[in-house]
Amino acid sequence: MSDHVGTLPAATAHQFDDAVQQRDASGLGMWVFLVTEILFFGGLFTIYTVYRSLYPEAFGHASGTLDITLGAVNTAVLIGSSLTMALAVHTAQVSRNRRLVALFLCATIVLGGVFLGIKGVEYAQKFHEHHVPGPSFHYSGADAQHAELFFCLYFLMTGLHALHMVIGVGLLSVLAVMALRGRFGPSYYTPVELTGLYWHFVDIVWIFLFPLLYLVERHS
């Protein structure tokens, strides 16, 4: 079923009755996968909730050491990438303009790259300040012990999120090449649509990570 050429509709796989059933099943499959992803990140969110409720002051102070400007800019960058992703799906839905689809996909990749770059700068700062948990951890604020717990969570949550971004960028790169070859059009764009769902999901995770990690106690 993999040898569909041009913008012809992809052949229906043998287990399906027709293309509609196939599309429908793929969409539902992606959503069910995202359900598992919600619970996957959910474990970390549960841990975060517990420790923040136990050590609110330490979390407040430790959160204050994060760079809020970089965090906010990154949020905007990621929202922008979600927009370009949605536009890529939209373009494939309504037109056969292969270049435009590829362009929007590439824009998404670039914005994803910018996000990861900024994240890298933040990580480097943390290494520099010895705020990375482990033997070399050093923290001058109050309650260093529980602050280390916050930084554990910071690195695990943003790290898992970044890993999902890297996977997303990889998927998008494949799609961009396929788009340039004219694989997608109004009759067949399921891969773009499903990868879009994944990308937006990763965006949603960040929408929660930003206030939970960066905005704990800025007002004091």
């Binding site: 969409g27 959503w31 995202l34 359900v35 969110f45 979600s82 992703m85 999901f201 949603i204």
Partner: peptide, 26 residues
Amino acid sequence: VLLYFMHLRYTSRLTLVFVGIAFFWL
């Protein structure tokens, strides 16, 4: 993001149920 970017508003109710279940379980 869910309703518009991810088209949840326009897809089948079943999808909505699954998303609801995920957040309920969380």
